[in-house]
Design a protein around this nucleic acid. Structure first.
Length: 313
DNA sequence: AATCAATCCAACCGCCTTATT
DNA sequence: AAATAAGGCGGTTGGATTGAT
C-alpha cells in the first residue's frame, strides 16, 4: 500500500511561482498561528496551494531568518569541507551554515563549487584527483609550474591524503565532543569503533585500525592520568567551531590548492603538545582541544596561498 | 538590436523516514 | 506489527536572466 500523493493529482491546486499576494497570505498566517499541520495550512490561510508547496516556500524563501546574497569565502570553505565528509547531505551541511537553506547550498554546489573542483582536476563527489585523461591534462597544466622536482602524482596523492585525514580528524573532534564514546566517559583506556554512540557518523570516517590506534595514543598515552568528568551530550544548535575549516582573510577559497615547496606535515602524534600536569587535571575538553590544535596546525599546510589559485578561479 | 547559449535558482517530484493510530 | 499520514530530503526541471555573438 503506497500512500496517496500529497497534492500531485489534486485538481485546481496552483503550481509554479508564488505571487507576492500568496507570499503575504502565507507569512501573515504563519506569523499569527504558526504553521501547525502543513497539510491543513493552505485551506486555513486561504491559499490554493498544497501543504508541501507552502512548506517549501516558507522554509526556502519566506522564513525571516534566511540569509540572502552571495556566499562568503568562509561559507564556501565550510561547504567544501563538509561535503568532503558528508557528501550530498545538504540539510546536514545547511545545519552548519546559519541562515542558509539546503536548497540554496545544493544550488550553489551544483552551479559553482562542483565546477570549481572539476576545473582543478578533482572529482566533486569523491574529492579525489580525477584519473580521466582530460582532467589529468588540466591538472598537469595547472600544476606544471609548481613542482620543484617533486612527482606530481606524489604531490596530489599527499594533498588528498592530508585533506581526507583532516576531514576525518575534524569530524572525530566533533564526535568526541558531542557524542563521546562510553569508554571515554568511564576513562577506560581504550577507544574502538564499537564504543562510539553514532555508528553511522563514524562509518563515514572509514576509520582504520591504524587511525584508531593513533587516536588511542593521542587520547590516552599522551594524557595518562587524565580524569574525564562527564562530557556534555547535547547537540549544539549552532555548528561546532571547526577550527580546521576556518581560514584567514588571505587564504584561498579552496582546501585543495596545490602549494609548492610544501614540507610534509607532521604526524598527528608528533604535533600533539605534551600537556602540563595543570592542564591534565583541568578540563574534560582537553582531548578535543588537542585534536583541534593538531587540526589547526595541519590546516596551515593545506591552506597555503598561491597565485595559481587566482588563475584557476 | 536580435538571436542564441549558458547560467541561475525557485519550485516540483518522488522517495525515504518518522510519527501516529 | 501493520497501515497510513505527514514531514523531510535529494535530484531534477524549466522559466527567467545574463552574456556572447
Amino acid at each position: 500500500m503506497g500512500r496517496s500523493p500529497c497534492c500531485g493529482d489534486e485538481s485546481g491546486v496552483k503550481k509554479g511561482p508564488w505571487t507576492p499576494e500568496e507570499d503575504q497570505k502565507l507569512v501573515k498566517y504563519i506569523q499569527k498561528h504558526g504553521h501547525g499541520s502543513w497539510r491543513a495550512l493552505p485551506k486555513l490561510a486561504g491559499l490554493n496551494r498544497c501543504g508541501k508547496s507552502c512548506r517549501l516556500r516558507w522554509t526556502n524563501y519566506l522564513r525571516p531568518d534566511i540569509k540572502r546574497g552571495k556566499f562568503s569565502a568562509e561559507e564556501e570553505q565550510t561547504i567544501l569541507n563538509l561535503h568532503a565528509v558528508l557528501g550530498n547531505k545538504w540539510s546536514a551541511i545547511a545545519g552548519h551554515l546559519p541562515g542558509r537553506t539546503d536548497n540554496e547550498i545544493k544550488n550553489f554546489w551544483n552551479t559553482h563549487l562542483k565546477k570549481k573542483l572539476i576545473q582543478m582536476g578533482f572529482d566533486p563527489m569523491t574529492h579525489q584527483p580525477r584519473t580521466d585523461i582530460f582532467s589529468s591534462l588540466s591538472r598537469l597544466i595547472a600544476l606544471a609550474n609548481l613542482m620543484d622536482g617533486q612527482s606530481m602524482e606524489e604531490h596530489a596523492a599527499r594533498l588528498q591524503a592530508e585533506a581526507a585525514q583532516m576531514a576525518r580528524l575534524q569530524y572525530l573532534q566533533y564526535l568526541l565532543h558531542y557524542q563521546p564514546p562510553a569508554s571515554m566517559a568511564t576513562s577506560s583506556n581504550n577507544l574502538d569503533a564499537s564504543s562510539f554512540s553514532d555508528m553511522d557518523s563514524l562509518s563515514l570516517l572509514n576509520l582504520t585500525p591504524t587511525f584508531l590506534q593513533e587516536l588511542n595514543d593521542i587520547t590516552f598515552s599522551h594524557l595518562p592520568n587524565l580524569q574525564l568528568p562527564p562530557l556534555k551530550k547535547e547537540q549544539p544548535t549552532q555548528a561546532p567551531d571547526f577550527a580546521v575549516f576556518t581560514q584567514d582573510e588571505n587564504s584561498p577559497s579552496s582546501p585543495y590548492l596545490p602549494a609548492c615547496s610544501l614540507p610534509s606535515p607532521p604526524s598527528v602524534a608528533a604535533i600533539i603538545p605534551q600537556p602540563s600536569p595543570v592542564d591534565m587535571a583541568d578540563d574534560s575538553s582537553i582531548v578535543s582541544s588537542y585534536l583541534g590544535e593538531a587540526s589547526s596546525i595541519w590546516s596551515d599546510h593545506l591552506l597555503l596561498e598561491h597565485p595559481l589559485f587566482q588563475e584557476i578561479a
